[in-house]
Deep mutational scan, measured.
Amino acid sequence: MLDDRARMEAAKKEKVEQILAEFQLQEEDLKKVMRRMQKEMDRGLRLETHEEASVKMLPTYVRSTPEGSEVGDFLSLDLGGTNFRVMLVKVGEGEEGQWSVKTKHQMYSIPEDAMTGTAEMLFDYISECISDFLDKHQMKHKKLPLGFTFSFPVRHEDIDKGILLNWTKGFKASGAEGNNVVGLLRDAIKRRGDFEMDVVAMVNDTVATMISCYYEDHQCEVGMIVGTGCNACYMEEMQNVELVEGDEGRMCVNTEWGAFGDSGELDEFLLEYDRLVDESSANPGQQLYEKLIGGKYMGELVRLVLLRLVDENLLFHGEASEQLRTRGAFETRFVSQVESDTGDRKQIYNILSTLGLRPSTTDCDIVRRACESVSTRAAHMCSAGLAGVINRMRESRSEDVMRITVGVDGSVYKLHPSFKERFHASVRRLTPSCEITFIESEEGSGRGAALVSAVACKKACMLGQ
């Protein structure tokens, strides 16, 4: 009897593995994704193909990295998701002549009506938060230079001027797309009239992360975010950046690689679950690469896999709870928690219980395998993109072996128990001629924006502006 049951459990697990095998990517698959990513990057950089390229390769006008001589107080704003952060950054000489960066910050959550109302409502709310922060720190009387981390696709015309191309991540505030974001912020500050600010720089969160990590390690020339969304930036040779005049030196390019796949480059790798996630998203047909990796989508992918296993009578005796059938019910943090389970399955059992399920031991094991399959594919897909960037940098610099540091931020990278190990191992397999160091950014977005502002202020002083 026991043997029969054991055989049935083994057969069930084997069927589960057959279904989950769809998520496995072979090294040849990853090399294919990497080569296609490089081709799209090239198209994004070139003037004649930029418009139709899915990977936009947006110039950021960040050319210099901090040298350690900029000092002063800077205000930093960070808008990239449902939370908005205001930070005071003091850049100065530390002990023994070292450079020191001290920060104080406060988080504000953005109400739904500000995210989806008008641009005026959104930026009025942001300036209200700045006003509140300055009151708390008794700094209303000071006109501070301000660095703005704005983590949406922007076409820069200068370091302090950028046109919002399109909202992502659930934002829909009308009247912002096609307009200068810094102008919208300046107008809102003017409307309030109770404080003055000098907006000197606007950067993407990947750029802010790279600059913040450069402060720790001067070989950091790539910034990457794996959180709600997924994106990367890197220092490109100016001669390859056709959208900006000049051939000397390097400029940081914001790849906006989340949109890779929007022209069909990933079609052969998309599964039924991916198509369902895409169809029910706020932007169907867009940001397809990001939807395979980002935390906004990972939990939902797992939920759809679990429903398939229920329908195949391989999980929960073929019956799903009402909660499990509800879109968004299986949160991405559950994926991390399930994979963090120590082996007694308590954590998995508790999560499934909150979803109205009474799982068996085998159910718990199957749910864990589903989570591992989805998150491992995410790590491997992400590795193909980064390997594409790094191999490109090595080739354009004609280096036999390139040493490089990548600064990384984002909740999936930082909080998932195995993502970074799987990701690092896969990147290294795909970049055999590179020695890569990964560092995690601390308060990256805010500190990085302030350091970019410090560079901009120093330049302005040198130019006598």
Rank of each mutant, 00 (worst) to 15 (best):
L2F: 10
R7C: 14
E17V: 08
E27F: 13
R36L: 08
E40S: 09
T49R: 14
V55Y: 05
M57D: 00
D73S: 02
L77K: 00
L77G: 04
V91Q: 06
E93M: 12
G97K: 14
Q98C: 09
L122R: 07
F123G: 06
I130Q: 10
F133I: 04
F133Q: 05
L134Y: 09
Q138K: 12
K140F: 06
L146I: 15
G147H: 03
E157F: 15
G162R: 11
L165W: 09
K172H: 04
A176E: 07
N179L: 14
N179G: 08
L184K: 05
T206A: 04
T206M: 01
A208F: 09
Y215A: 00
E216G: 03
D217C: 03
H218A: 03
E221A: 10
G227W: 01
T228I: 03
A232L: 11
E236I: 00
M238D: 00
Q239K: 05
D247I: 05
W257H: 04
F260L: 04
G261A: 09
S263M: 06
S263D: 10
D267C: 01
L271G: 01
Y273A: 06
D274N: 14
D278Y: 14
S281Q: 07
A282S: 15
P284G: 14
G295P: 13
K296R: 09
V305M: 00
L307W: 02
G318M: 09
A320F: 15
A320N: 07
L324W: 06
R325T: 08
G328R: 11
S336A: 15
S336K: 14
Y349L: 04
L357G: 08
L357Q: 02
L357V: 05
R358W: 02
T362K: 11
D363A: 01
C364R: 02
V374K: 00
R377M: 00
V389Y: 01
V389K: 02
R394G: 03
S396T: 14
R403N: 12
R403I: 11
V408N: 08
V408R: 00
V412M: 05
P417L: 10
E421C: 10
V427N: 07
V427H: 06
T431C: 09
T431Q: 11
E435P: 08
I439C: 03
I439E: 09
S453R: 12
K459T: 10
A460R: 11
C461M: 15
M462S: 14
